[in-house]
Amino acid sequence: MSDAMDALEARVHRQLNLMHDLADRLAGIRVRETSPDGTVTAEVDGNGALCDLVLSPAVSKMSPSAFDAVVVATAGRAAHLAIARRGELVDAFNTELAESMPGNDSGH
Results as ranks from 00 to 15, higher is better:
residue 44 V to H: 00
residue 21 D to M: 06
residue 11 R to H: 00
residue 33 E to K: 09
residue 22 L to P: 07
residue 74 T to C: 07
residue 73 A to T: 13
residue 83 I to L: 07
residue 23 A to H: 11
residue 18 L to P: 02
residue 72 V to C: 08
residue 8 L to M: 11
residue 49 A to V: 12
residue 95 T to H: 14
residue 3 D to H: 09
residue 14 R to N: 09
residue 83 I to T: 01
residue 7 A to L: 07
residue 87 G to R: 03
residue 76 G to E: 04
residue 36 P to M: 02
residue 77 R to Y: 08
residue 24 D to G: 11
residue 85 R to L: 02
residue 70 V to N: 07
residue 22 L to N: 06
residue 83 I to M: 03
residue 13 H to W: 09
residue 14 R to T: 10
residue 63 S to F: 02
residue 65 S to D: 15
residue 79 A to N: 06
residue 11 R to W: 00
residue 55 L to W: 07
residue 66 A to S: 14
residue 59 V to K: 08
residue 60 S to I: 07
residue 84 A to P: 04
residue 100 S to Q: 08
residue 39 T to D: 15
residue 7 A to S: 08
residue 63 S to A: 12
residue 74 T to N: 07
residue 10 A to W: 04
residue 72 V to R: 15
residue 57 P to T: 09
residue 26 L to E: 01
residue 47 N to M: 12
residue 10 A to C: 03
residue 56 S to N: 05
residue 71 V to W: 03
residue 44 V to K: 01
residue 105 D to H: 13
residue 85 R to H: 03
residue 52 D to L: 11
residue 9 E to D: 14
residue 62 M to Y: 08
residue 89 L to S: 00
residue 68 D to A: 14
residue 99 E to P: 07
residue 93 F to H: 11
residue 97 L to Q: 13
residue 98 A to N: 13
residue 107 G to C: 04
residue 87 G to H: 02
residue 55 L to P: 05
residue 50 L to I: 04
residue 5 M to I: 12
residue 105 D to N: 13
residue 2 S to W: 08
residue 58 A to E: 15
residue 3 D to Y: 04
residue 101 M to E: 11
residue 14 R to C: 00
residue 45 D to H: 05
residue 59 V to A: 09
residue 17 N to T: 13
residue 90 V to A: 00
residue 101 M to W: 06
residue 93 F to C: 05
residue 62 M to A: 03
residue 99 E to S: 13
residue 68 D to V: 06
residue 77 R to E: 15
residue 83 I to N: 03
residue 74 T to A: 07
residue 14 R to I: 06
residue 31 V to C: 00
residue 91 D to L: 09
residue 32 R to N: 10
residue 69 A to K: 11
residue 79 A to Y: 02
residue 17 N to L: 11
residue 90 V to N: 01
residue 39 T to P: 05
residue 84 A to I: 03
residue 91 D to H: 11
residue 58 A to C: 09
residue 74 T to Q: 06
residue 101 M to T: 10
residue 18 L to W: 01
residue 107 G to Q: 00
residue 100 S to N: 07
residue 83 I to R: 05
residue 82 A to E: 02
residue 80 H to Q: 15
residue 49 A to D: 14
residue 34 T to Q: 06
residue 85 R to K: 09
residue 27 A to L: 05
residue 94 N to C: 10
residue 5 M to A: 15
residue 13 H to T: 14
residue 28 G to A: 13
residue 80 H to W: 10
residue 87 G to K: 03
residue 73 A to N: 10
residue 106 S to R: 11
residue 43 E to G: 08
residue 67 F to Q: 10
